[in-house]
């Protein structure tokens, strides 16, 4: 009997390991520095994680479908610059849908290359990372983009507003996470994403149009990027051409940390949200401990490596398994 409970605890740890690690981590930091669990601090962390989080939601679909998306960072810069520029030219009410349309076009292009032309997603999106950066610079002429009249616009609502006492970025993140979680776990489309990423051949034999499913994951990803760009632009009302630089790796780290396998076929929206929060709280905890913020780049890298390692170790059943 005693053995049985021991085993079920082990099983629970293996399944919910990421959640447990998160809680342990929170407790340790909270003891080290009580300010860490201050409600203002927590809300601050979640708010600053919202942009990363929104992007990670879309990338979760791409990764479960068996592909990568490294273009989200520079695509987010693009969205931000475009919406700020259009804001002064055609007004916010038109700027927002205009920016979404342009970003979705980029997503559709990537989806076409990866889904219909069957090009390797790593190469395609890595290439798009720099191509979109070039596009952004061309669009802006290399200048920072600013809204002329920052006082008299309702555009700051998405990044700075709050409803029912909750900051709007958190609200957007939560709603989008809830919605996409339903899409992934409850709709036929979500099921097909798992099938395509889990075993593409079996998906084909089941009559699933793989190319279309992959295409749709990139559309979804670009939609999330556009949303993140909107929050970013609205928060700062002005931006450099490089605001999203490096985010693609953090996004990927959050997704993997949440337990989605890079091989495709596994992961959930909920786990990605946990991954995003872990990343946010770790970075925040380190800041509170007095580490310079650029130490975060190194820390993020360490976290990615750890997460990938644990993912592989869980599959092979052992930590140490060198290439023969």
């Amino acid at each position: 009997m005693a053995e049985l409970t021991k085993k079920s605890i082990g099983g629970f740890l293996a399944k919910q390991g990421i959640l447990v690690a998160f809680l342990v981590f929170m407790v340790v930091f909270a003891i080290a520095n009580p300010r860490f669990i201050d409600i203002d601090n927590i809300s601050g962390v979640i708010r600053s994680s919202a942009i990363l989080g929104v992007m990670a939601l879309g990338v979760t679909f791409v990764v479960i479908g068996g592909n990568l998306d490294l273009s989200v960072g520079s695509m987010m810069s693009f969205s931000t610059i475009v919406v700020l520029d259009l804001h002064d030219k055609i007004g916010p009410a038109l700027a927002i849908p205009g920016m979404f349309a342009m970003t979705l076009c980029l997503g559709a292009f990537i989806g076409f290359l990866v889904g219909y032309l069957k090009l390797n997603s790593l190469i395609v999106t890595l290439g798009m990372l720099s191509a979109i950066h070039g596009l952004t610079l061309t669009y802006s002429g290399g200048q920072n983009m600013d809204i002329a009249d920052k006082q008299n616009t309702w555009f700051d609502f998405f990044g700075q507003g709050s409803m029912l006492g909750i900051p709007v970025p958190i609200l957007i993140f939560a709603l989008l996470a809830a919605g996409l979680s339903l899409v992934l776990s409850k709709t036929p489309f979500g099921r097909k994403v798992y099938a395509v990423g889990g075993n593409g051949t079996a998906a084909t034999f089941s009559g699933i149009p793989r190319a279309r499913v992959v295409f749709m994951t990139y559309i979804l990803s670009s939609f999330c990027v556009a949303t993140a760009g909107l929050i970013q632009a609205s928060r700062s009302l002005g931006s450099q051409n490089t605001v999203g630089q490096g985010l693609e790796l953090e996004v990927l780290a959050a997704v993997i940390l949440g337990g989605a396998s890079l091989l495709g076929g596994s992961g959930t929206v909920f786990k990605t949200v946990i991954g995003v929060l872990i990343l946010g709280f770790i970075q925040n905890g380190l800041l509170l401990m007095g580490l310079a913020f650029y130490a975060q780049y190194v820390v993020t890298w360490v976290i990615i490596i750890l997460a990938v390692w644990l993912d592989i170790a869980a599959k092979r059943g052992r930590l140490w398994s060198p290439i023969a």
Binding site: Y194, A195, G198, N199, A202, A203, G265, S266
Partner: peptide, 9 residues
């Protein structure tokens, strides 16, 4: 295994 099933599902 290859054509019939998604083993992780």
């Amino acid at each position: 295994k290859g054509q019939g099933l998604v083993l992780g599902m």
